[in-house]
Design a protein around this nucleic acid. Structure first.
Lengths: 222, 222
DNA sequence: GGTACTTTTCTTACATGTATAGAAACTCGC
DNA sequence: GCGAGTTTCTATACATGTAAGAAAAGTACC
């Protein structure tokens, strides 16, 4: 006995598209053509609807991106094996989040959003907080510690990817890059000393090193 | 003998507006009406020109904002008295940058830019790098340390202000805020434990605490 | 003065996110 | 079947950043 399209009970015009369809189609566009191609008009056309219809399933484009990020996290954020040492657990979980985010740089505009991502990321947050507690922090301090780790992680991603994007835009010197040229070696000796290697030095991936330092510092009683 | 407008030597149509005028007028608009009111059309009207004319003095709106930020930094970033202890010098300088940035939240869209801000901020960078070196780090590690501090600082500002803005937009629950509601206390006990106080805990200003932890961690030999 | 060249400015046009107003397609009580 | 109410969808319109190209206003050389 196949109930055809399942009898609806709710009043009002029945929806022709769903939030899932919106997000799923958006994901397909982003995956295949890049986030720049994801416009509300394009998305609506792909779905076979009109741009404004999307706004009944998504508050605005930013929320759509947040949903995309959550969707992405749910699919690619796999739980790592946890080391016994709680401090190392914290590091491993933060690094896992970082790695997943670094792999999809279009996230930047969303990353600024809030602290925790999708429900699938909550497990990682739990592990981090729990690891900090296991190392002796009271729960409140552990939450603060998690926040510090998140600030550091989000900041790293945001700064790095936008710096990279800027360089990609058009080859030539952004205003900021000229700042090292007329450097006064008397007043700023340290910077003058490393000026030539600045690009190279700041291009290195030191996320893990900084993360370890932060975690160590959070866990060392003052 | 007043040389009227100083004889020009360069060929081409003489400019009627200058980059300084563009930035200065933009600053006045932002100061008096907020960054949301700063549009290229509005700015052009204020200057008495056309929108596209601005693009000969500024690469695009983002660069204009970067220039605004630098202008702001040059005016409000005052050098603090430096403590003798080099580690404390690092903390004081980072905190000064953080304080200046936190005071003008419209910066967020620019903050993602790069690492160092205006030339007027270079002094702070110098002090931080020098402080780390004075504590025993080799110069390369000191630069990496500065970067870590910058990631943490920028991340804190970006995450906090956009989270705040989102709440201000419209009162009601963003998708993200509902994530704590259906929390599984068995699988995520720590989060369940603090769920009720999450808003309150993450609202606290713990920048300095995290900064100290990071600096301590950077300076502790492993 | 006239021609070539350069730099700045102006005009026009387009893609984008989204506000607003109303039409369309349902359920429910009668 | 019919009006009331509700939800979803559509049409239209606007503000914004900015690309493209033409026009303007100079200098340099003849």
């Amino acid at each position: 006995m196949p109930q055809p399209p399942a009898p609806r009970k709710t009043p009002g015009r029945p929806p022709r598209i769903s939030r899932e369809e919106v997000v799923g189609t958006a994901r397909r566009i982003v995956d295949s053509e890049g986030v720049a191609r994801l416009t509300m008009r394009r998305l609506a056309a792909e779905i076979g609807s009109t741009p404004m219809a999307l706004y009944h399933h998504v508050r605005n484009k930013e929320e759509l991106l947040v949903l995309l990020l959550d969707d992405y996290a749910a699919r690619t954020l796999h739980r790592p094996g946890l080391p016994a040492e709680p401090r190392e657990r914290v590091v491993v979980c933060a690094a896992a989040i970082h790695e997943a985010l670094a792999a999809c740089p279009w996230i930047v505009e969303v990353l600024t959003a809030d602290d925790l991502l999708s429900t699938s990321a909550l497990w990682f947050v739990e592990q981090i907080v729990d690891g900090l507690v296991a190392c002796g922090l009271p729960p409140e301090r552990a939450v603060h510690g998690y926040r510090a780790i998140w600030y550091y992680t989000a900041g790293e991603i945001v700064v790095r990817t936008t710096a990279g994007r800027r360089r990609a835009d058009d080859g030539r010197p952004t205003y900021r890059e000229q700042v090292f040229d007329g450097l006064d070696g008397d007043e700023l000796p340290r910077l003058a000393q490393v000026a030539g290697r600045w690009q190279e030095l700041t291009a290195e991936d030191t996320y893990l090193h900084g993360l370890r330092a932060l975690v160590d510092g959070l866990l060392t009683p003052r």
